[in-house]
Structure formats: C-alpha cells, structure tokens
Design a protein around this nucleic acid. Structure first.
Lengths: 194, 194
DNA sequence: CGCGAACTGGAGTGTATGCTAAATTTTGAG
DNA sequence: CTCAAAATTTAGCATACACTCCAGTTCGCG
C-alpha cells in the first residue's frame, strides 16, 4: 500500500488519469496501458498501489457518485430548497461533464448488469429522492408526503433524462427546462397554467 | 452475402443471439465467440454474413431504435394522443426490456463517444419530440408551440429517466408515474393542484 | 445430374489486454 | 549512515479477443 509521500502522489496521478480517460474515451478505451502512459507510470507501480484496474475505475466512479450530491452539512440541509438542489445538480453536470458522464455511463452500462452496483445506484437515488421530497414539503406543506415523493422522483428522473439528452445534443436548452421543470413540479416561478 | 435460404436463416439466428446477449450481459460480454456459440454457428459462417462484429451489433441497435417508436402510419398519427404515445413507450419498455436496455446502453455508452451515433440519437429524439408536440397541441390548442415543445421534451426526458431508474430498481412504480406525468404536463387526468 | 457459387465449421493468426516477476532505486525512521 | 520497506521500471506471461484461411458441404439453377 501507499505509505510514502511519493506513493500517494502517484496514486493521485493514476486516479486523475483514469478519470480523464473515462470521460474522454469511455470505459472501452480506458485500458491499463492508457492509464499508465497518461499517469507516466509503469504497470508495476500501478499494481503496487491498486489491486486491479477495476479498483481504480470503481474508485473514480464512487467519487463521481458522491460528487453529484456535493456539500451541505445536516444543518444547511434544513434550509435547502428544491431550486437550490436542482441548481446544484445542473451546476455539477455543466461544470464537470466528465464526471457526470462517468456516472451515467456506469449506471447504465454496469448497473444494468451488476446487481451489486445497481443496488448502490438505487440506494443513492433513494437518498436524493428523500432530500428533494423534504425540501418540497418544506416549501409546499399542503402536499401529502406521497404526492411530494412522486413529484421528487419525477423531477430527478427528468433531470437525469435531460442530462443524457444534453450530452447527446448540447443545443438542449437547460436553463429553460430548468425553469419549466420547477414550474411543473409547482415550485419557484409561476404555477403551470393547466 | 446471403442469397440462399439457409444463409438468411443463419443471419437471423445470429442477430437474435446478439440481441439476447446485449440485453443479458451488456456490450462487454457480447463477444464473437459468445454470439457464435449461442447461434450454433462457426466463426467462418459469421463472417460470411457480416463484415464485422460491429455490423451485427449496430444492426441490432438500429432495430432497437426503430422499435421504440413502433407503428402508426401517417394517417393514424393525426389521431394519436399524448397518452397513447406515452403508453406505447412504456409498453415497449416493459414488454421488451432487453431492447430498451440495448437502446439506453448504446445511447449512453457509445453515443457519448461516437459523434456520428450521437447525431443519430439526437435526430431520433427530435422526431419523437415533434410527434409528442403535435399531439399535445391537438389536445390543448391554447398552448403556444414553444410551450408545447418544451413540455414534450420534458415529458420524453422524464420517460427516459424513469426507464433508467426502473431498470436499476424494478420497484419504481411506473403506472403511478405515468399518471402523474400526464397530469403534470397537463393532459389526460386531473389538472395539477398548484 | 453438373457445376459454380454460397454456406459452414474449426483450427489458426496476430494483437492487445490485464497482470506478474524480478531486479533496481528511493524513501525515511532509528 | 543503515537498512528494511516501499516504490518503480522493464520484460514478459497467459489469456481472450476479433478476425482469417481453407477444406469440405450444401444449395439451386440450367
């Protein structure tokens, strides 16, 4: 394992190379040789720090998952709004498209095959739903909790879908959809007309 | 290429094996050997009918893309409703999860890497948006066309996102979301309360 | 039938991959 | 300074992959 400073730095370089490659050429192109070349490291060094290539990739993916729900201690959470949550998500997607891409890729390409990973993603999604539901109930106390939960699930699903569409076609107008989405869920701007 | 009946049958068997494997073990596990074993065919036969493994896989993916928007001649299209379109999509997803999965997998795993494929998916998505927009305008003529288009895009994005969530966690309640989604877009059932 | 073209299976090829072994250098606590 | 552990490089191994070659078989038109 890494105990000296040099080893830790190398470990970091490897993870950064892995992350960059996953975002640029996808999982398929992220070979061990590519990682080592990019990190400026021999294969032996890699295996001195990681048990397998999969470990490095999963480390990156895990970080991507965490990064989706950045920040907010439990105190600030009680003040966060649906709008701020949506903005945090969209801000992450647009400012870190590489990580967002890795997340989606992992969810669809692996999550659908590996039950363990699927469970991890599902759990993560459930936590996000809880967070949005809580915010929604704070802003619109008249909603039943089931109603709020369904709306939260829809909101998050739509955000995920929009992200995919945006990545396939950057002309997708995220700000407009953001506004529309908040209105349709019944928060923030004008109430939907019908 | 295939000219005899036998060759055409073999070709069909190969495509079916490819489709099944893509749905079961993903792109990663869909090797040439796996395809040939499953189809009961030698590698030579495969390459007598397909120029490459990629050709077979892309043929299957193309079919999956087409299958998402099944049926409806141009006459029936003028009578289709938002609800019928949503139901057609959800019906396809739940009755042919394998194909739906291939579609999503291809869109995310390849579409994000291969610009050509991304363009194909984007074009396909644009056509779907047009179709839903037209239906929405028919049902609610008071909407502006921009408004209808944005709602259609959101509806489709949410459907895609819901599909992903449902595949990761089958407990996702599609019928409820379907009803909610139609209401939120402003069609079908009760108008949203706020 | 006859015959050329299509089809078939399976061994074989080259290559890229993930990973290892061993020899060497670097690190840093005592 | 010493020295054992950690870090690093390099060469190479085993495997799996997409794909080719080729000898033999089947097809179906004339």
């Amino acid at each position: 394992m890494a105990r000296y400073r040099s080893g830790l730095e190398t470990r970091q370089r490897i993870l950064e190379a892995t992350r960059a490659l996953l975002g640029e050429v996808g999982l398929e192109g992220t070979t061990l040789k590519a990682i080592c070349d990019r990190a400026g490291v021999g294969a032996g060094s890699f295996y001195n720090l990681f048990a397998s290539k999969e470990e490095a990739v999963l480390t990156v993916v895990r970080a991507a998952i965490e990064a989706v729900d950045v920040g907010h201690d439990s105190d600030a959470r009680r003040r966060e709004t649906v709008e701020s949550l949506v903005d945090a998500y969209l801000g992450f997607v647009t400012s870190e498209p590489t990580l967002a891409r890795i997340y989606l890729q992992a969810a669809v390409a692996w999550g659908l095959s590996d039950p363990g990973l699927a469970a991890r993603f599902a759990r993560h999604q459930a936590q996000r739903v809880e967070r949005v539901t809580a915010a929604l109930l704070r802003e619109r106390p008249e909603l039943s909790s089931e109603d709020a939960r369904v709306r939260a699930e829809l909101l998050l699903s739509a955000l995920n879908g929009l992200t995919v569409n945006w990545m396939l076609d950057p002309r997708v107008d995220l700000p407009t959809h953001r506004r529309r989405l908040l209105a349709l869920v019944g928060v923030g701007g004008a109430v939907p007309s019908g």
